[in-house]
Design a protein around this nucleic acid. Structure first.
Lengths: 299, 299
DNA sequence: ACAAATTGATGTGTTTGTTGCATCAATAAT
DNA sequence: ATTATTGATGCAACAAACACATCAATTTGT
């Protein structure tokens, strides 16, 4: 590894190269002229070639010195830039937060958090990535995202999370379905309905959560059909092949062919959490979390 | 001006960021672990923000640290590159030599020197500029060229020169001219000839030199015609309007309409020198001079 | 469950390197 | 000829960085 002269030497040289006068340069550097003279000597000794041509009356740059000066100023400037960049990141005034989000947060929670964040922290860039809950968990562990809007709860020693929203689940039925005659339905009401759900690949975590809910309510969850596409799923419901269950935030996006009713049971909630890795000390991230908390569930 | 941490600190940080272990890093840096620990502390204190997250068992980069590391490696790499570039220039292994040349050197001296130089120093680029002797002198003083092939001698305290060639002067006459009956002519033979010379603007230095020669030979130099263009000048000679005087190296480029004879007098020589500024310490230049010397006059 | 090893941090005396002061020789200006 | 200014240098004083020994915290090995 090549010997790399200290920055004090480099800075001294740059000053002398600008002033072409040791005494004035020494004044600017606030050191003695002799010290500066020795610094330049040391620099040249380390490099192994002269940078300055000096007589007792005049100082001028050698060709190598001219070239080195050009490089040195650029390097010092880059260095200061790097220090400033890192400072901005450390202070959270810039940087980047990679945000994962899934469908249930896509309509309200994530957009609102993002909107608040952008006004408060315009210097911090956000990268939004649509990922399902499972993918977000893996992405968090692998440091591919910094924070994720996902279905909760999530217990993992490496991660921390807060509950952002607990929203009522709704049944989605074809238009004219008997359930729509009531203003709200109970778990009992849907015990014998046919269910159409997204397949495990697409709805993995949600399916697990729903399965859990039904077990705890003493109802069997037997999906009659599976659909891998949301539009297709709603289409199947509208076609009268069965019903499905959606969180409230998505009930406004279902089109005209279906009707919705809330499930009147405190268990039938979908929790959306915000999760991040504990060891991620990014200031930008903590800023994002703070902002996202403003929409936190008051439950 | 922002405080700029020393390179030893920067280098230490880069090492730790790579090893993520203080002891191993200290070994690599060949210093004590405690010294390294303090270096990192000092760096962070200078910057004002932490770069590393350390527990007693683990070291990891903060975001600012990661960013700073990326910048730091690039900066160190640029720095080493700059040192190497300047070294190559200092050693004359790269660089640029601006060469001025005039007509008398254009056919042999300059091309041969350039050819030798390009094989020996392929990394050094040459810039060739056609200039007359007077122009070269001004260009040397003004640092517009590094070295010049010109008519000598040249005495100037700022410049140094070596004699490259001293070539015989030839009379150039129309075909069938009486002087051509002799194998060589004397100054006396041309005492009463009509002379056609280039004008002062084009032939300035050469005219001065010729005038000097004629005075020292006791012969008046009365140009009958002046031409500003070399081809026109030779045309006028071929047309029988007079004779002119050329150095040997150019006698092969005169076309069919004229004849040439050497002037049998040791004074009638044209000296071509290589001149450069004394304070030009460019290694590339001294390399060029060394190569050009190989064609030096043995006189 | 307990001892041994490994982590980074810290207290302390020593050393190395840098500085400022005074002065020098060389050169330019007056 | 005198004076002022240039960068370089000898030397003593100082400050910063260092190695050594040790610490508390934590993991590893048995």
């Amino acid at each position: 590894m090549t010997a790399v002269p200290d920055l004090s030497l480099l800075h001294s040289f740059v000053t002398v190269a600008q002033e072409l006068n040791f005494r004035r340069s020494a004044d600017r550097l606030a050191i003695d002229q002799s010290a500066l003279s020795r610094r330049i000597q040391k620099l040249e000794a380390l490099l192994g070639y002269p940078l300055l041509e000096r007589t007792t009356r005049e100082v001028m740059l050698t060709q190598a010195g001219q070239n080195f000066y050009d490089s040195a100023t650029r390097i010092l400037s880059d260095y200061r830039q790097a220090i400033g960049d890192a400072r901005r990141i450390a202070e959270g005034r810039t940087g980047r937060v990679r945000v994962g989000y899934m469908a249930f947060a896509a309509t309200e929670l994530m957009p609102q958090a993002v909107a608040r964040f952008e006004t408060r922290h315009p210097d911090i860039s956000l990268e939004l990535r649509y990922m399902r809950t499972q993918g977000q968990k893996a992405a968090l562990i692998n440091d591919e995202i910094d924070v994720g809007f996902m279905i909760g709860p999530y217990d993992n020693s490496e991660c921390q999370s807060i509950l952002l929203a607990s929203e009522q689940l709704y049944v989605v039925t074809p238009k004219g379905h008997p359930l729509l005659r009531k203003t709200q339905v109970t778990p009992e009401d849907i015990r014998n309905e046919d269910f159409i759900l997204g397949d495990m690949a697409e709805w993995g975590e949600y399916r697990h959560r729903l399965g859990d809910l039904f077990v705890r309510s003493g109802i069997a969850l037997n999906p009659k059909l599976e659909a891998s596409n949301t539009l297709a799923l709603i289409g199947l419901v509208a076609a009268g092949l069965g019903i499905t269950i959606y969180p409230k935030s998505l009930t406004g996006f279902l089109g005209p062919g279906v009707g919705v009713r809330p499930i009147n049971n405190s268990l039938f909630q979908s929790q959306t959490i915000l999760a991040w890795k504990r060891n991620n000390r990014s200031r930008a991230l903590s800023n994002f979390i703070d902002v996202a908390k403003l929409g936190e569930a008051s439950v």
